[in-house]
Design a protein around this nucleic acid. Structure first.
Lengths: 206, 206
DNA sequence: GCTGTTTTTAATAGACCTATTAAATAATTC
DNA sequence: GAATTATTTAATAGGTCTATTAAAAACAGC
C-alpha cells in the first residue's frame, strides 16, 4: 500500500500546476511528468481530470474557510477585528500568491464550478457565523456613532477587493519595480498597512 | 473587396469568445463557426490565433487608455477628480463586464503578454500624463492638509482594486441575489457610490 | 469575356490531449 | 510460496486543435 505516495504526489503536482497555469493549460501528462509516473494514474486514482481538480479545490476552499473561523468568535471591537482579519488574510495570500487567480479563473468564471464557492464557503455554518459576528460588530459601532452607516457586505467586499487585488496586480509590480523577494515582501507589507488605514478611516466618523 | 466584412467579422466573434471563455478555451473553429466561414480564414487574415488575440487586445487596451486621457487634463480638485474617474471607470466596465477577467487571465498571468500592459498602457504618454496630473492633485491636497499623506500609486490602486473587483465578484452576486438586470444595475450603482465614499473618507483628514 | 488577383473553401498533416484497456509488476494474504 | 489483490505501465482509441496547402470561387481591370 504505497498508494498514498503517488496519489498525494499527483495531487501536489496537480495543485502546483493548476494554480500556476490554470485548468485548461495543465494536461494530465504535465502532471504525471512532474511526478515521474505514468499518465494513466491520474485516471486510476481520480477517475477524471475534472474530479482531481475539484478534490484539490474542495481542500483549498476548506482551508480558506478554516482561517476565517479563527477570527470570528472573538469578543473584540470592530477596530481590532478589521486589522486582525486583514493581517490574517494577507498572511494567507502571501503564502498562496497565485490562489486568487485560480479562484477567479476557474471557480468564479466557470458557472458549473461556482457552486463550489457557494457550497464550500458561503453556505457553511462557519462562514455564516463569521458574517454574523461581523454584522454584530458593525451594528454596535453604528449605534455608538463611531462609524458611518454601512452594510456588512460592503465592508467585507471592500476588505476582500483590496486584499485580493494586491496579489492580482503583484506580477505587474514585480515586472516593474520589485526586483527581489525582499522588495516584494516590503511592498506587500506596506500595502497591507495602507489598506487597513483606508478602510478604518473610510468608515470612521470623526 | 468584401474583405473587411469577414476580417472584422472574425475579430468581432473572436473578441466576444475570448472575453467570454478565455484564450485557451476558444478555438479558431469556434470563432469561424460563429462567423459562418471557413476555419482557415483565421490564419489567412491573422496568421496565427495568438496574433489575432494580440490585435484584439491592443485595441481594447487602447480604448481603456483613451478613456483615461479624457479625465486627466482637467484643472479640477482631487475631490471632484476621484468621483469623476470612478464614474467613468464604472461606466466603462459596466459595458464590458467580463473585461477584467480576460485582462487578469490572459494579460496579467501570462508573462509573455504582460509586456502588452506595459507597452500599451503604462509607458504611453497619455497614461504618464494622467499619472502626473493625479500626483499633482494629491500633492496639492496633502500640502493644504485636507488629505493624509498617501502615494499616488496607492490611491490609484485602491480605485482600481475596488472598481475592478466589483465586476470580478459580480457573477457570484448574480447567482445569489441579483435576479435580473435591473437588480444588477442597482447593485453596481450602489457599490460605486459606496466606493467613492470609502476612498474620499479614507484619505480625507477631518 | 478573358486574365490576373484576392478571397474562400475542403482536405489534411501533425501535434497533443483525455480516458480506456490489457498486460506487467509489486504487495498482501493465507 | 501460491493465490489474490492493488498498483503501475505501455499502447492506443478517439477526439480536438492549429496551421498549411492546393484548388475553387469571386472579383478586378482591360
Amino acid at each position: 500500500m504505497a498508494k498514498k505516495n503517488l496519489e498525494s504526489g499527483i495531487m501536489t503536482a496537480a495543485e502546483k500546476l493548476f494554480i500556476e497555469k490554470g485548468f485548461e493549460a495543465t494536461s494530465t501528462t504535465d502532471i504525471t511528468k512532474m511526478v515521474g509516473c505514468n499518465q494513466a494514474l491520474v485516471n486510476y486514482y481520480f477517475r477524471t481530470k475534472e474530479k482531481l481538480f475539484q478534490q484539490i479545490f474542495s481542500q483549498k476552499l476548506d482551508h480558506i474557510l478554516s482561517f476565517m473561523t479563527l477570527e470570528s468568535n472573538q469578543n473584540i471591537s470592530l477596530f481590532d477585528f478589521i486589522p486582525q482579519f486583514i493581517n490574517a488574510y494577507f498572511e494567507e495570500l502571501s503564502n498562496n500568491r497565485k490562489l486568487p487567480f485560480i479562484i477567479i479563473n476557474e471557480l468564479v468564471i466557470n458557472k458549473e464550478r461556482r457552486k463550489f464557492i457557494r457550497e464550500e464557503i458561503i453556505l457553511k455554518e462557519q462562514f455564516q457565523n463569521y458574517y454574523s459576528t461581523l454584522t454584530r460588530l458593525v451594528k454596535a459601532e453604528i449605534e455608538k456613532g463611531t462609524i458611518r452607516n454601512i452594510d456588512t457586505s460592503d465592508l467585507l467586499l471592500h476588505i476582500i477587493s483590496l486584499t485580493v487585488f494586491t496579489f492580482i496586480s503583484l506580477p505587474l509590480y514585480e515586472d516593474f519595480f520589485l526586483k527581489d523577494e525582499v522588495a516584494v515582501r516590503n511592498y506587500v507589507a506596506a500595502r497591507k498597512e495602507e489598506i487597513i488605514t483606508l478602510i478604518i478611516n473610510g468608515i470612521r466618523v470623526n
